[in-house]
Design a binder for these strands. Structure first.
Length: 419
RNA sequence: GUGGGUGUAGUUCAACGGUAGAGCACCGGAUUGUGGUUCCGGGCGUUGUGGGUUCAAAUCCCAUCAUCCACCCCA
């Protein structure tokens, strides 16, 4: 056992695994490009106030999960627990609303939450996400959902379901909260202690409770959808209509409640059906008041975020491909000092021509070098010995077929390129 | 933050309170100019860490750290 280990809830992405990450990141970028979203990169830490004012003082994230610290001048920062607030901060700060072609943004990177680690839940985790800022049009809601759907589908995932809901605007919510309080109050004693708290602070979360008794009571609770005002209802209907038009299957789940305070109207989750307790693959929704809360102009927006860890877990579960592991194209086997030096020159040339090349600096015997060539998974071995060198030749051996032929050294790069 | 399970070689796992072992991987050789297969050889690892009980602890007890599962929360 080594003396040091990674901090709790974090992990190393090892060389054998990194290609999986590269693969899903590559696909995400491709899909973002298909939809014409452009990348935005924001710092890993921000003034903690940014999260407190947007995500919400009473949310779990702010209340107990933030990595908060003071710098040497006493400024209070937090490692970002999520990506939306920083993007909106940057959007306001840089006046992106005034520029064309800069309202559709995507981001990638680590987020931090001090949470108890579990399968699919880490303290440093990697999110991908998009934000579409500036429009209240339900076309945009549908497009954002479509992008997530397209991404998951492109990766080959099948075991997931899209659930959507509308949590209304401020007006609807207050009415609904009152209705919930009225409904649950008579059964107060039967609720779990968490739920008694929730009833005061955020009654909607009660719908999400997993305690059996609470679940049973919540079964008959009034539905959010009945409390939506005209606008919100119309909007939600349009979102559904557009999704249907794009042939994106969804189910309406009135019990979806997002844990971040800035959400309004459209809320959605892509749930993995065989992942365990941490099964939200992608979560997102509309946040029409967020920009104002951060001191900007009234600027509506909608976006989503997903975690790469769960994505990869889910893909492994479904035995999906992550593409090929990185292997060198050519492995140079050099015999003798002169051949080794001549080989150096050759290696440089091949690498410059874009041919990935490997060799072993320590092994001298043919046998050992061939073994290494095989182990790296190289496609070809180039064998250079005294005899070949004398005649300006080199042996090109196809390691999968086992065939080999003698080639003039000046022609070798062309021969490999032609393969 | 709460509850439960687990921690032994690089890895997957064995070992009744009494000498810590096997598969895979890895290294070397058979084969000093040709790999994958095969055969032979190679393991002292503070049994996660720190205490305690005992003649004796990987094994029992306590603490701690990590991990897994669930609550919670969410990506």
């Amino acid at each position: 056992m080594s003396t040091y280990q990674v901090p709790r809830g974090t992990f190393d992405i090892l060389p054998d695994e990194s290609y999986k990450w590269q693969f899903v990141i590559k696909v995400f970028r491709e899909i973002a490009r298909e939809f014409n979203y452009k990348e935005i990169v924001t710092p890993i830490f921000e003034k903690s106030e940014i999260f407190e004012r947007s995500v919400g003082e009473s949310s779990d994230i702010v209340e107990k999960e933030m990595y908060k610290f003071e710098d040497k001048k006493g400024r209070v920062f937090a490692l970002r627990p999520e990506g939306t607030a920083p993007v909106v901060r940057s959007f306001i700060e840089n006046g992106l609303s005034l520029k064309t072609n800069s309202s559709k943004l995507y981001y990638l990177g680590p987020m931090f939450r001090y949470d108890r680690p579990q399968k699919g839940r880490y303290r440093q985790f990697y999110q991908y996400g998009i934000e579409n800022i500036g429009s209240t049009n339900p076309f945009v809601d549908a497009e954002v959902i479509a992008l997530a759907y397209r991404f998951l589908t492109k990766l080959g995932l099948k075991n997931f379901a899209l659930q959507i809901n509308s949590i209304g605007c401020k007006n609807c919510t207050t009415d609904y909260d009152d209705a919930l309080k009225e409904y649950f109050n008579p059964s107060l004693v039967e609720l779990c202690s968490d739920c008694r708290n929730r009833l005061l602070k955020n009654p909607k979360r009660l719908l999400d409770c997993k305690v059996k008794s609470c679940k049973a009571i919540a079964q008959e609770a009034p539905s959010m959808l009945d409390y939506l005002d005209e606008d919100c209802t119309a909007n939600f209907d349009k979102v559904k209509e557009y999704l249907t038009a794009m042939e994106i299957p969804f189910i309406v789940n009135p019990k979806i409640v997002r844990g971040l305070d800035y959400y309004s109207q459209t809320a959605f989750e892509f749930i993995d059906t065989n992942l365990g307790a941490q099964n939200t693959l992608v979560g997102g929704g509309r946040y029409d008041t967020l920009a104002e809360q951060l001191g900007g102009k009234n600027m509506p927006g909608i976006g989503f975020a997903g975690g790469f860890e769960r994505l990869i877990l889910s893909m492994e579960e479904e035995k999906l491909s992550f593409g090929l592991q990185q292997v060198p194209k050519v492995y140079l086997v050099a015999l003798g000092t002169e051949a080794r030096i001549a080989g150096l020159k050759l290696i440089m040339e091949m690498r410059r021509m874009g041919i990935s090349t490997e060799y072993d600096p320590d092994k001298t015997s043919m046998n050992a070098q061939m073994k290494m060539a095989n182990r790296t998974g190289a496609e070809f071995a180039l064998i250079l010995g005294e005899d070949e060198l004398k005649n300006n030749n080199i042996i090109l051996k196809d390691l999968t077929k086992g065939e080999q032929k003698i080639i003039k050294i000046p022609d070798i790069i062309k021969s490999i390129k032609d393969k």
